[in-house]
Amino acid sequence: MATVRIVITLKPGVLDAQGQAVHQGLRALGYETVSGVRVGKCIEITVPDQTARDDIDAMCERFLANPLIEEWRIERDQDRDGTGRSRVPVLPRSQGS
């Protein structure tokens, strides 16, 4: 079995009121340098290893996302490092505090 992670976000240009509210919250905490926030959702599904990308796209198209307003990207296990985290590059953690 494989765990597939589906990250769903509002399409660029579609108003993200939730993101705006979170942005306000960050500013209220003093994080003035944050210039934008978009909020999406992450869905992990467990499927047989041989599940085709097309099948997962169909799940997104038909149900998991609303194609009128949302887009998605799919990450498989092999896209991640040994910690189970995405291999999408991340900034180094700050020291202290």
Partner: peptide, 16 residues
């Protein structure tokens, strides 16, 4: 809307 029986989609209220 979600069933596709009507056109369009709903977003969260712009007034937050």
């Amino acid at each position: 809307l979600e069933a596709g029986l009507l056109p369009g989609a709903m977003l969260r209220n712009d007034v937050l």
